[in-house]
Nucleic acid binder design. Structure first.
Lengths: 249, 249
DNA sequence: CACTTTAAGTGTAAGATATACACTTGTAAT
DNA sequence: ATTACAAGTGTATATCTTACACTTAAAGTG
């Protein structure tokens, strides 16, 4: 490849992953304690550097895979972060991605070997650099996207109950939803398939399991029908043991 | 600054600006013919390279200013583009920004000296590299943001008429709106101030001029009130003289 | 085995919002 | 004085959103 643009500065390009999961009725992030300087030992997002031989999307997937062992994960670019002093280690541009993981299917041990932990978004610790900013922005993006696209299912096992789904939506949008209205709305989409089985984890009666009909959804998308949930962008109330509230974008 | 991360690749980081304007009842983009290799002479977005001494946002503003002479312009980061071969000149990460400009206030001559032209989004030519993809994505982002935030006013002169405003919204969302419903909705927000003056450009009767009440809007935002317009994300129909439709993200 | 406990599951009516729709007004040009 | 043109205005209907409380199924308990 002929090389033009010789006279311009080159930069380190990092990738940081905001990894969402849903477990025990709570929306969680996979965070780890940084293993190298600067800021060794502090809480951080999973990150890494872009190499010449990969695209941004590929690099983000690689980094997610290193931590979780997972591939083919729902991942979207959030934004590039480029303040001059954002990383005290060196001038670094960071491109943040967020990922949605089904914690059930995940090898929890693998995450633990890397010193990673699933932490509820209501109890986030202070994070290094501008990572808290990234998390705030990712939460906003997740909320907005949730109302436009049925991405909640990326966070649940393949088979899930309606109470689970409702609880997930409540965690994402940060407010209580009416059970009957929620069920009516979500079933009206025609995208859920009711199974014969029940899940008896959380009640004696048991709740019917459902599957999301990806096939039908894709055909709707092609036809231009829109998925729309009336999920308001209420704030998730954060407990006061982190700096998430302090850092403004 | 101590330099960590020595072992990682460095990359050129470019910025590309999707510059929106509204003129003659049409949503337009400021495009220019590229003055250097590769792809010299082809239509392109305004772009430039990030230097060590500036943040991404600063660089984007600098580049916009170089072309238009304008500063303090509404500008948002769209996304980073990082396919390996996206720029045949060299491996380059590009961070795209979109800007909203009041064409009236703009020195049209300055744009012309740079060989730039305002081109209707319904008549876009083929663009270099992945710039058409960037434009498509910027249009989507503009439509979505328009329904959440009163950014339309960034594209109009300080004083504007309701028919102008309606025409702008129609251009953005790509469909006709009902005059009475539109006026009712937009006036209900309480964010428009009716002036005594009339604009007689487009009718004998003349249409009253209005101003957007930025102050009131900011106080609403602080109080958490939301601006919401029911602007559907209809597609803007593109005429068949560009490749905008062909490139998929 | 009857009783208690727990969460799952179900429908409707009232209020709010969105939509469709047609005539009058003001002014310049002829 | 007449015509032509876009600006400006209100209401009724349909649709969507919201609020709300009891019944059901099954396991655990005495």
């Amino acid at each position: 490849m002929t090389r033009y643009y010789k006279e311009y500065d080159e930069h380190l390009v990092a990738l940081d992953c905001i990894i969402f999961g849903f477990d025990e009725g709570e929306l969680k992030l996979l965070l780890l304690k940084r293993k190298f300087e600067p800021a060794k030992g502090e809480w951080s997002l999973m990150g890494g550097f872009l190499s010449k031989s990969e695209s941004l999307d590929e690099a983000a997937s690689r980094i997610l895979n290193q931590l979780t062992g997972l591939s083919n994960i729902y991942m979207k670019q959030l934004s590039a972060f480029g303040e001059i002093d954002r990383d005290p280690g060196a001038r670094t541009i960071s491109v943040a991605y967020y990922a949605l993981i089904k914690i059930d299917e995940n090898d929890r041990l693998l995450a633990e070997t890397h010193g990673a932990e699933w932490i509820s978004i209501t109890k986030l610790p202070a994070l290094i650099f501008d990572h808290s900013q990234m998390v705030d922005k990712a939460l906003e993006a997740l909320r907005r996207r949730t109302s436009r696209e049925p991405i909640g299912f990326e966070l649940l096992p393949v088979k899930f109950t309606l109470p689970q789904l409702q609880s997930l939506y409540e965690s994402i949008c940060g407010e209580q939803l009416d059970k009957r209205n929620f069920r009516k709305q979500i079933l009206e989409t025609g995208l859920l398939v009711k199974l014969e089985e029940k899940d008896k984890e959380s009640s004696k009666k048991g709740a019917f399991l459902y599957k999301f009909d990806h096939r039908k959804y894709n055909s709707y998308v092609e036809k231009g029908f829109l998925f729309q949930l009336k999920v308001r962008s209420g704030q998730i109330i954060k407990e006061n043991n982190g700096n998430v509230l302090d850092i403004q974008e």
